[in-house]
């Protein structure tokens, strides 16, 4: 069975059409996603105000949960808190200027800059990738797919989130441009093809290794860390 979940809303061209699911947004708000997934969510929210408002409404649920907790764990030390305030003055807000028009700030923090700072590694067929440093329960990577190139046919054991940052790709389930997220679950075999025009750059997160069918010898997988 091939099934890709996306939440399609009607939107004018040039805007995000493939959104995050309510489940992912609530899990992000509850703070239970693996770090790599949270990175994709935070990057998408930086581009998509619709999902940002949805995530904020789940934060409101969190606020209501917090407010209704019975405060039975005992009092807290007010004086110690004041001492803490005095001894650790506010960190001056270091608003980092955006490195470029492609990389939103949460992602820039993981790259250590903009597109120029990405340390790409060749994967084959002109495709390049860069693994980003996150906790090990899931993997985040940047993918660089030359315009007109097919991304190797692959299946998943877990969930894969793919967020387009530049260019666009299409597959069996539709067209994905900047800000769009494809959410592919287990058993999805798909062959995304980058559109001609701009090279396609995506941020992808997987919670299990990808299985490539035929494109890359399976024995090489441990070495390229896909």
């Amino acid at each position: 069975m091939t099934q890709t979940q996306t939440h399609q809303h009607l939107a004018p061209p040039g805007q995000v059409t493939h959104h995050l699911t309510p489940e992912l947004l609530m899990a992000y708000s509850a703070g239970t996603l693996p770090e790599a997934f949270s990175l994709v969510v935070a990057t998408h929210l930086s581009i998509c105000d619709s999902c940002r408002a949805d995530a904020a409404s789940y934060d409101t649920v969190g606020g209501a949960v917090l407010d209704s907790i019975s405060p039975d764990a005992g009092a807290c030390d007010f004086e110690a808190t004041l001492a803490r305030i005095t001894s650790s003055p506010a960190q001056p807000a270091t608003a980092q200027p955006l490195p470029d028009d492609v990389i939103p700030s949460p992602l820039a923090a993981y790259i250590g800059g903009g597109l120029d700072a990405v340390k790409w590694k060749k994967v084959g067929g002109g495709v390049r990738q860069a693994i980003l440093p996150t906790s090990s329960d899931a993997t985040a990577r940047l993918l660089y797919i030359p315009a007109g190139t097919a991304v190797p046919d692959h299946g998943h054991r877990g969930t894969e989130l793919t967020l387009v940052l530049q260019g666009a790709f299409s597959d069996e389930d539709g067209r994905y441009a900047r800000g769009d997220v494809e959410i592919a679950d287990e058993d999805v075999d798909h062959t995304p093809i980058a559109e001609t025009g701009a090279d396609c750059i995506c941020l992808a997160a997987t919670d299990a290794p990808l299985r490539f069918a035929g494109w890359l010898p399976r024995m090489l997988q441990p070495f390229v860390k896909i």
Partner: peptide, 27 residues
Amino acid sequence: SVATWVYTIARNRRIDILRKQRRPEPE
């Protein structure tokens, strides 16, 4: 609301301290 705001600060601290992960936040 203030409760929501305090919740987000507490949640991020929890991820940092208990899960020992960074918390990516939107721009």
